[in-house]
Simulated assay, not measured.
Amino acid sequence: MNDTPVTPRSSAPATRRRFWDHTEVVSEPEGFAVRLDGRPVRLPGGAVLRVGSRALAEALAGEWQAAGGGGKGGEFAPSDLRLTRIAGTMLERIAPDRAAVIGVLLGYARHELLCYRVRYPALLVERQQQEWDPWLEWLRARYDVVLRSTDGVMPVDQSPEALAGLQSVLEGLPDGALAALGVAVPALGSLVLGLALVDGRLTAEQAMACATLDERTQMELWGQDAEQAARLEMLGMDVKDAASFLALLHADS
């Protein structure tokens, strides 16, 4: 075949063997496309890997150039193409069906991390107030959306007005921002922090530090958990990918 799928389908092996020597970015009427030895990269659904930002396209090409150790015959996996994954989501999942992705993101609002507080230990209670309250207030001031909080074990129901307001916010975002949120929000467990990241109010590191307040405090009180720390590091990489994607997407504007 002349075109290359970004990620293997479910029946394909976890890794693939690199068959190209060089990558390049080509300016086309529809945007900037990534090519491998002159051949376009195609996503699993058949779309060409083409974006509106040259800076992003160059970064995508860089991923493909580094994949498999940078030489023909090397093995690469989807995890080597982290920005390509987000671009693929933007092109093949969000562009044709924004409503489905928005619905998934709204599900996180119904269980918003910042709205679930503890009653003890006192140190964590205080830190949640100090670090989480300002972002709920930011949401109110920025988007006129008020979310309810609880310190009990039962779920808190957010008002229809709040959910409608968040839906309106999401509907107003471009496809690229929704693609970034699709990666950042599950990692953070927070739509509010994801929106602050997209809005440029938080860096990836700041958003992750806020989202992992509970875990960091528990490890401070009871000792380090290597498995937990490794998991948080992996989630942090997702948030950094989302932030990098956004920065590159808007670098040319």
Results as ranks from 00 to 15, higher is better:
D238F: 12
G88S: 07
R9V: 06
V51W: 13
P155T: 09
A109T: 03
L36K: 07
R140W: 02
V41M: 11
T217G: 01
A242D: 03
E137R: 01
G107W: 12
D21L: 05
T7M: 08
T15L: 12
M90Q: 15
G176W: 12
S159P: 00
A12G: 11
R127Y: 15
E215S: 05
L232A: 11
L173C: 06
G46C: 09
R110W: 04
D252Q: 08
Q224A: 13
A207F: 06
G62K: 01
Y143L: 00
T15Y: 10
A122M: 04
M234P: 00
E63N: 04
T4C: 13
E215Q: 03
A209W: 02
A109I: 06
V26S: 05
P160A: 08
V156Y: 06
R148Q: 13
K240L: 08
Q128E: 11
D133W: 03
Q167H: 03
G236D: 05
L163I: 12
M154I: 01
L83N: 03
V183E: 10
T89V: 11
G62S: 09
D21W: 04
Y116L: 13
W20S: 04
R82T: 09
V146D: 01
A109E: 00
H250C: 00
T84D: 00
V51N: 05
A77R: 14
V26G: 04
L136R: 07
V118C: 11
E75C: 11
P134M: 10
G172E: 02
L232F: 15
R216I: 08
T212G: 01
Q158P: 01
T212V: 05
A164V: 06
A162H: 02
Q206T: 04
G194I: 12
G182E: 03
